[in-house]
């Protein structure tokens, strides 16, 4: 962790060399997700509820997803540019240093401009918690914490999966963004509104519903099954196959000519 901060400080020093660009991107990031929020607001201005969920409930759902997403993004987004790290040979350097590869990839690409999105997610979260209409008992607080942690793990797993594919293709696969950037967008509504098959896919294949839909049902009192409360923890297991896939990828690493 200390080393992570050292990396952070050297990157901060580098980024401050270009300070206008730094502040512009913080503001830009902030505005982008802010427009998403506006879209949500105007929609509910018209319709008041979506398949039984009220505006304030959806807002809580959205802010929980956004929060865990931006948390994952803050730390794990280094993998987003992983195809670049491979193609410019930076990964060779990572391999000859005596530290975990995943750690080095993460630490070498810390994006302070993502703070904009993170701050906004926090603000929205702080706003949604009291207005959501949920009575905050201990189990509900625990459920919400599980949701955030589960979301962080699943998103991190997706970022790692995305990067591991680069080992085989040497090129990022844009379709993976459906599940990362895309999830941030469509994750604002409880997944059930997209229909049965989507929900099944998001439960069994890419377990995003485990930290969003099911615990959310419990949170809003639409279901009282305590099992739903712990499903986000099951979702965390998603990280394991992602890490295994990464391991296999490292063994297949081809490097680039020099």
């Amino acid at each position: 962790m200390k080393l992570y901060l050292k990396y952070a400080s050297i990157i901060l020093k580098s980024q401050m060399q270009y300070k206008t660009s730094f502040f512009m991107s913080v503001i830009g990031q902030f505005l982008v997700s802010f427009t998403v929020y506006l879209g949500l607001y105007f929609m509910f201005h018209r319709f008041h509820s979506v398949s039984g969920f009220t505006y304030s409930e959806v807002l809580l759902c959205f802010s929980a997803v956004l929060f865990s997403y931006s948390l994952a993004e803050c730390f794990v987004r280094g993998f987003d540019v992983f195809s670049l790290i491979i193609s410019n040979g930076e990964f060779d350097r990572i391999m000859v240093r005596p530290r975990n590869e995943i750690f080095q990839v993460l630490a070498s690409r810390i994006e302070f401009s993502r703070l904009g999105r993170f701050l906004q997610a926090m603000a929205m979260f702080a706003y949604a918690i009291p207005v959501s209409g949920v009575v905050w008992t201990y189990d509900k607080i625990l459920t919400l914490t599980f949701m955030l942690a589960g979301g962080f793990f699943v998103f991190s797993g997706l970022f790692i999966l995305y990067a591991a594919i680069c080992f085989f293709t040497l090129e990022g696969l844009e379709f993976m963004n459906i599940f990362t950037d895309g999830a941030r967008e469509f994750g604002k509504y409880p997944f059930s509104i997209y229909g049965e098959s989507v929900l099944k896919f998001l439960t069994y294949v890419i377990p995003m519903a485990l930290f969003q839909y099911y615990p959310f049902l419990y949170l809003t009192g639409k279901s009282s099954r305590t099992l739903y409360m712990f499903l986000p923890l099951a979702g965390m297991l998603f990280l394991i196959p992602c890490l295994i896939f990464w391991r296999i990828g490292v063994r297949h690493y081809k490097s680039t000519g020099s």
Binding site: S14, G89, D92, R93
Partner: peptide, 11 residues
């Protein structure tokens, strides 16, 4: 690696 740098570029 003669053709690749290991130094951080901007610091």
């Amino acid at each position: 690696f003669g053709q690749r740098s290991q130094l951080w570029w901007d610091v």
